[in-house]
Structures are given as C-alpha cells and as structure tokens.
Design a protein around this nucleic acid. Structure first.
Lengths: 157, 157
DNA sequence: CTAACTGCAAAGGTTTTGCCGTCAG
DNA sequence: CTGACGGCAAAACCTTTGCAGTTAG
C-alpha cells in the first residue's frame, strides 16, 4: 500500500528523475519494453502486461508510449510494414542501430555501425541540421531467404 | 479515343515494360508523383488529380500506390509523423537519399550521400542482407529553427 | 489533498475490401 | 472480347479523445 515508489527499471528511473509520476501501469509497461528488448507493438505490450497479472487499457498503453516518445526514451518504428501497419517500439539508449526488414519472411535484423554517426555529421555539416533521433529501416532479402531462394522467382515486396 | 497508349512518364514506361495495364487514372497519378517531385500523400494526390481535370477515387489512389510499391518504383515514408499520421510517397530512381524532419517546424530536408551505399555494403558484409530499398528518416532541429531558438526552451518531440 | 492518471466507450483518420459496371489491350 | 480496373460505399484497423472515477506523491 505505502511502499516507497521504486522505479524498477532504467526507463522508469529516467522518468522519475524528470518528475513524471510513476503508476503501476506505467512501471509495468516500461519493464516490458526493456525486458523484451524492443520490437513490441501496442497490442503485444497490452497482451504481455495481462500475462504478467496486470491489466492495462489500450489507451493507457498508447498514452504511455507517447510519453516515452516525448522524452526521447523510445524509438518508434514501422519496419516498412512488413509486419503490419502498426508501430513498434524499442528502448533508446542502446545506441543507434539500423533495422533490416526482410520482404520475404518478415524478420527484422539489427546492425550497429559507426556509419550512422557519420550520417549525423554530414547532416550537421551540409544542412546545419542537429540530429536528435535516427531511424534507419532498409528492406530487402535476408541471408536465409536468399539461400532458400535458389530457383524461386524473386518476390516483389 | 483510339490514341495509341502513350506512357507519358518514366514510371509509366517502366510499368508498361513490365506488362502492367495503363489506365488514364494510373497515368495521371504517375505523372503527378514525378512532376511534383515527391512528398505527396494519398489525399494530396487525389486533390492534384482533380485540379488537373481527372477525378480519381481514393481507393484507386491507394491501389495504384500499392502497385508502385510492389514494383519498387516509389518509396513510402512517414517523416516520423511530424507532418501527420499518413504516408508520403516519392519516386525512386533518383538515387537514395535521407530525410531530415524538423520536430519544430515540420519541414523535411533531403541529403544525398554515398554514406548510404556504405550502409548497404555493411549490411551485405555483416548480415548477408541484400538491400532493395533504403529508408532513412532522422528527426531533430533544422538550421532555421536552431537560429530562431536562442532563448527558447528546447521542445520535446 | 489535488493534479494527474486510468478505464471505458466512442470517435477519428487512414487505408482496405467487396461488388458491379467499365475499359484497355 | 475478356480479364483487369475504377468507383462507390462499407468496413477494418490503428490510434486518439472525452469523461468520470481513482491514485500517486
């Protein structure tokens, strides 16, 4: 009942530090996003929360995600719609990375590379643009699908 | 009435070459996307078509855009939602480039750089991923807004 | 205690679909 | 001619909003 508010996760700690009120629902959503490691959509977040014994309304999920976006704590992705029309979220602060979405099987791989920093430098030097978030999503054919594709006609998107 | 089908634009020519049937509506939509130079959403395409004396149903616009996507002729973007929740389309084949979306004013700038090719190489070398389309959208603060922002508190997304 | 938050239900906006008449090739 | 396409209207989806009760700090 009167337990002292315990952040419980990195995201939660950051929000508390910014004076944001921490409710049970928010704490749970934040934990999920961190422990699942990203690539969750709103429906999946709600589902996971329910599995873990706390019911959260869909609206609350969206409101919490908007809050996290505003504070720059999550990145919003859509994986070029290879997985559907909804948005996917992942915790930021793991460093920028890009997402490679396979048009064939829908799998999404990640790649961390310093080349993304170079893009930011180029934006600064050429456009005077100060980059705050980077979203790189490329589409194509993953290694596995390329191997199984021997004679198969190349599928278009 | 019986004028021989005349592609009329680069996109149209490519579609015809692939054996896709070319209707008046499609021809007009294709011309628009090329002549306006991109960053159009479905509603705007419909609007422009109507201004140019040809009425096209919204469903047809979406069906045509899907067709162009399937053939890899247009890129679908959302500009990190700084301009709304809809999708924007631009002709491909102008070479890859990235989009810098200003969270303050909503303007979108482009930058063409060979660094994007390097990303593709890294994807190939590190993941065995064959890249077919590249979508880079970064968010931040454009030059103009940075200048007008002297004392103003930095807005969050 | 009180502003901020949640759930609920309804609405909003974009995009998709089914059906039938029309048209390109 | 005939299969593919366009218009129309309805539906599907994801996401947002208004309101009243609840809660964190």
């Amino acid at each position: 009942m009167s337990a002292r508010p315990r952040p419980g996760s990195l995201l939660a700690t950051k929000l508390v530090a910014r004076g944001v009120r921490l409710t049970n629902q928010r704490r749970k959503i934040l934990e999920l996003i961190e422990s699942e490691g990203g690539h969750l959509d709103a429906a999946r977040i709600q589902e996971l929360a329910r599995e873990r014994q706390i019911s959260v309304d869909r609206a609350t999920v969206y409101r919490t995600l908007a809050l996290l976006k505003q504070h720059g704590l999550v990145e919003e992705l859509d994986f070029l719609h290879v997985r559907g029309d909804q948005h996917f979220y992942e915790s930021r602060g793991l460093g920028d990375h890009l997402h490679a979405c396979c048009y064939r099987c829908g799998r999404v791989s990640e790649l961390r590379t310093a080349t993304l920093d170079r893009l930011k430098e180029e934006l600064r030097d050429n456009l005077g643009f100060r980059t705050e978030s980077v979203r790189v999503e490329v589409g194509g054919c993953c290694k596995e699908c390329a191997e199984h594709e021997e004679q198969v006609s190349p599928v278009v998107i």
